[in-house]
């Protein structure tokens, strides 16, 4: 097997506090995992706020350098990416999707600008028709078309559509890996499933691996192949989604699992009554 992404004992520390009470915050501790290049998969990182899941994502994207340990993408150390050419090549293979699509796009800029400039920069296209063709092709993958998006501003579209456009933008360079940090937490319930289903489709039709970062265990179970659960920087449990989320063994993952309310009034109200008795 050739590794697409390989994390080896990755640590990240932050120095916090002032001059007199300086301390070290271990945001990510000894994280290791490998994604296979031949078998695209949806790899989910689950954790609460402060668990280090976003820091891990930022390191994979090359926005943070690890304090120790190495991250390799297609055999190359991400920290060793130095020149503009290397950086562009890396970025065209690894693309991000952010949490809040309303913040990711400047409200004063038309959305097609983001798509066209991504196509120009990563595909090196100069010709207007070629740029538009590339943009339209990737919009088709997410169920939109350039005709619908051209000249529109972010406030004219719903969160679900904006998040689709964010995915389309990420697809333009033809990435191998998409890092999606809480991509559905700001999207309405009726549109959430369309984004999550889209990730499945990307994996199956385009062969893109996806690192899906979330605190929502139900969607994690729904789409993931493998899952790791992070708690205060540590990976407390890792494995196949059915095993980790279906039968968690670690104390913390069991607590997380039982904190998920089932969408069933009979069971859910019984859980709350049980809690009430305990108080």
């Amino acid at each position: 097997m050739t590794a697409l992404l390989e994390l080896q004992d990755v640590n990240k520390d932050y120095r916090v506090g002032g001059f007199l009470d300086r301390s070290t915050l271990h945001a990510v501790k000894h994280v290791s995992f490998t994604l296979d290049a031949e078998k695209p998969e949806i790899f989910t990182v689950v954790g609460e706020s402060g668990s280090g899941k976003t820091t891990t994502a930022r390191m994979i994207l090359g926005n943070e350098t690890p304090t120790s340990g190495t991250l390799r993408f297609m055999g190359k150390d991400i920290a060793a990416v130095r020149t503009r050419k290397e950086r562009l090549e890396f970025m065209s293979r690894v693309q991000p999707i952010f949490q809040n699509p309303f913040e990711a796009f400047n409200p004063l800029t038309t959305l097609d600008y983001y798509l066209f400039s991504t196509a120009r920069r990563f595909l090196g296209l100069k010709d207007k028709a070629a740029v538009e063709a590339a943009t339209d092709k990737s919009l088709q993958h997410v169920g939109l078309s350039l005709a619908e998006v051209r000249g529109r501003y972010s406030h004219e579209l719903s969160g679900g559509q904006l998040q689709r456009i964010a995915v389309a933008r990420a697809l333009i360079p033809g990435p191998k890996l998409i890092v999606a940090d809480e991509p559905v937490s700001m999207v309405d319930a009726s549109l959430r499933m369309s984004i999550v289903n889209l990730f499945r489709e990307l994996r199956d039709t385009l062969g893109v691996s996806i690192i899906y970062i979330t605190h929502d265990l139900s969607t994690a179970y729904y789409i993931s192949d493998r899952v790791i659960i992070m708690h205060k920087g540590d990976v407390v449990e890792a494995g196949r989604a059915e095993d980790v989320l279906g039968n968690p063994t670690h104390e913390y993952s069991r607590a997380l699992r039982s904190a998920v309310l089932p969408p069933d009034p009979v069971v859910a109200s019984a859980i709350i009554r049980e809690k009430l008795r305990a108080i």
Partner: peptide
């Protein structure tokens, strides 16, 4: 469309 743990059947999005 609510996802449940223990069920990976495809949900249809609106």
């Amino acid at each position: 469309s609510l996802p449940r743990i223990g069920d990976t059947r495809k949900r249809v999005a609106l």
